[in-house]
Design a protein around this nucleic acid. Structure first.
Lengths: 232, 232
DNA sequence: CCAAAAGTGTTATCCGTACACCCATGG
DNA sequence: CCATGGGTGTACGGATAACACTTTTGG
């Protein structure tokens, strides 16, 4: 029949660095899957829900203040997903701003998704889901704030979107879209030009640093609603 | 520390009937929460994953062949979400076409979401999540197929969308949007007019009866991609 | 004065809603 | 011939991608 099952939480924490999507993982020292890279996480305690659990366990790897966004991805529950006692996992998706460079434990490192070493168990599936979620939400939410530093130039922001979406993004149109949606705010500060000159870039910040849906009704919106109106 | 936790699956199965969103629930006979209405579900077995489990347990209430779509919603894991041993729930969202009228057990019935009787535990949260997921996905996927019979008129389809979205929908524009996306196919058949006359309606079907995203990039789409081009 | 980078203006195109208009049937 | 409901055509506004053009710096 049905015995209690162990429950663990796992997090695919992503960051864009030098234009590449990275994920946080630690190298397993012991069997099973020794040498392979695993996502941070661990067993759910009796006195915490899954979100509290994943935040607690991530705190062992990264300063929690540097995690800009955390959300549930899905449950992974194949009976044979890990050897040993049956363990169900709640997978999370996390984002760390590109300027954060947390101190990491010795067995822990960032890895580029494009060149991911062998991963433990079903963790590659979780990473794939996380990347897809990030791509989708960048389009219809303000989730960009979680990839970006507090202040940035449009060029820097463009590089982050390129890394996350995996296709070219026009700085011109990116700025226009985010501005029209009321997500972007000029700080007034000016970034010095690079060594080869060029006009100095203005610095911007996101008006809001919590998740907001900016594009709720793609179609079939309620009558009278103007499409995707900018926020005042 | 951390003992094994019980794991259950729960499903908010929705159907539109007479223009109203309904959810399937059964009335608890025993404490705790006796008399209150609960979502179908139950304990996860050792040899099944959560999706197999929810389908198995739904089969006790509804003919599985009548469930047109099932997907994960979220994990509910508040330590006090149910009395007694700590139990984590994976919540699912299901859809039954409006023409299906499955035989139900004596304690089980459909309830309109607009007039939901007292629900057990945290099940009202799950129902709310399911309704929101349905609303969102009707806009950017072909999920309408899971609400509709195999064949239908545009008027009938419009009523389903109105019930699910909760706001007026123009039959004209609904047909145009779904047609442009290549989701709708005329069957050639004609529905007889009602008692008060009127032009007989053509009958349609969905070209595809599995979930497909039809509106992937709201903005920031890859260069060269024409916005939301129709499928040939 | 020229190259480089940032930012603004302009245009073509597409999409979705709203609404006017024609079509087919029953009484 | 009129009411009723079904379906198509058209106009309008909003949004985005693409690209030309101006602005501001370094050499």
């Amino acid at each position: 029949m049905s015995r209690p099952t162990a429950h663990e939480v796992l997090a695919a924490v992503l960051q864009i660095r030098d234009g590449h999507l990275q994920v946080l993982a630690w190298q397993r020292a012991r069997e099973p899957d020794a040498g392979r890279w695993a996502l941070p996480g661990g067993r759910l305690r009796d006195d915490e829900d899954v979100e509290a659990s994943v935040r607690r366990q991530l705190a062992e790897k990264v300063d929690v203040r540097e995690i800009a966004h955390v959300e549930q991805l899905a449950v992974f529950s194949d009976p044979d997903r890990v050897p040993g006692p049956r363990t169900v996992a709640t997978a999370f998706f996390g984002l760390v701003p590109s300027d954060a460079d947390p101190a990491l434990p010795a067995d822990t490192a960032w890895h580029r998704l494009a060149d991911l070493p062998p991963t433990a168990f079903d963790h590659a599936l979780i990473v794939r889901d996380a990347r897809e979620r990030l791509r989708a939400k960048l389009s219809y939410t303000n989730l960009g704030f979680a990839l970006a530093p507090h202040e940035f130039t449009i060029s820097e922001l463009r590089a982050l979107y390129v890394g996350a979406l995996g296709h070219p993004v026009s700085a011109t149109n990116l700025q226009r879209v985010l501005t029209r949606r009321g997500l972007l705010q000029p700080t007034g500060a000016i970034a010095p030009p690079g060594p080869s000159g060029g006009r100095p870039a203005g610095r911007f910040r996101f008006t809001d640093r919590s998740l907001r849906v900016t594009d709720a009704f793609a179609v079939l919106r309620p009558p009278g609603e103007v499409a995707r109106s900018a926020v005042p």
